[in-house]
């Protein structure tokens, strides 16, 4: 019996390890490229007529020479620092605006019964079905042509914040619903105003949910690529995603800069994601498994 079990597990380990290799290979490849100190997409220069060993060496995610020059140069010679700054500013502003809008609306939806409440919630849900490109052209016309907010932070921020609202509102409302109403009632009797209750009682109690909402808003802005590439025309105003594509899109192929930039951009997001994955997963499955 024990024999069979180990044998089974061996097979499982083989399967799992091969998938692990598959899952990590592109990541290791980017890391190798980032630390290679060169710009070409191949990790080593192949001889004229390469044999099996040379080929094998070229696919191993190991740079020929270890160097951090890609990291230093992308920061000093390229506009990457500026793009990171743009991304950071846009993402932080989006987070603040998004969380403010979502908290107020979610509180009303959770605590008050008013005419139009159900319609409003339904509208938020329906809006999630609108296809991106249908919104893209009108948004381009409204933001860039009418409001002339192309190449500005504000243009991107207001669009990102509003697109993140529905998800955040639904999520926060679910959390506010779990906060017992008795707390508010007793505060009301003690003479606290609605605003005080919201500010002093509800928001502190909802901290974990607000954190998730903030993270979601931040990630929306940090990882967004299409709108940013349309709104930000001048190179100095690129956000990090648009800038990274600039390195390897079209006719340029600065793969080293791209790899180094990708590592810098991904690190905070991947770190946060792996750290918070448990909450994310419980949030995803909570709705479906009842």
């Amino acid at each position: 019996m024990a024999d069979i079990k180990t044998k089974n597990h061996l097979l499982l380990h083989v399967v799992l390890i091969s998938f692990t290799v598959l899952a990590t290979y592109p990541v290791l490849w980017v890391l190798a490229l980032a630390f290679s100190g060169q710009q070409s997409v191949g990790l080593i220069d192949l001889p004229k007529d390469p044999g099996f060993i040379e080929r094998f060496r070229s696919i191993l995610p190991m740079p020929a020479h270890l160097s951090v020059s890609n990291f230093t140069e992308v920061w000093t010679d390229q506009d990457f620092g500026r793009w990171m700054w743009n991304s950071a500013v846009v993402s932080l502003m989006t987070t603040m605006l998004g969380v403010f809008l979502a908290c107020t609306a979610a509180y009303a939806f959770s605590r008050f019964r008013f005419p139009g409440r159900n319609t409003g919630m339904l509208m938020f849900l329906v809006s999630q079905m609108f296809p991106g490109t249908l919104m893209l052209i009108p948004l381009f016309i409204i933001i860039v042509k009418w409001l002339e907010l192309g190449n500005t932070y504000v243009g991107l921020v207001i669009v990102y914040a509003t697109t993140a609202i529905p998800f955040c509102v639904w999520m926060l409302k679910g959390y506010f619903d779990t906060i017992p109403y008795d707390i508010e009632e007793s505060a009301l009797i003690d003479g606290a105003s609605r605003l005080t209750i919201f500010w002093r009682i509800i928001l502190p109690l909802a901290k974990p949910a607000i954190a998730i909402t903030a993270l979601f808003s931040f990630m929306t802005a940090w990882n967004e690529f299409i709108l940013a590439s349309i709104f930000m025309e001048s190179e100095l105003n690129y956000t990090a995603p648009v800038g990274l594509r600039f390195f390897v899109g079209g006719f340029s192929s600065q793969w080293g800069y791209f790899a180094a930039g990708s590592v810098i951009v991904s690190l905070p997001v991947v770190g946060l994601f792996l750290h918070l994955q448990k909450y994310l997963i419980s949030g995803l499955t909570a709705g479906s498994v009842k």
């Binding site: 809008l101 009303a108 939806f109 008050f112 509208m123 809006s127 052209i137 009108p138 016309i141």
Partner: peptide, 27 residues
Amino acid sequence: HAYAYAYVTPAMIGMLVLVFFPFIYGI
């Protein structure tokens, strides 16, 4: 329900101007 509407209005205006209006404009 003035209080409730005051809380919902900012988000609603954002949604109307930057989600629903573009949607209708697009169509």
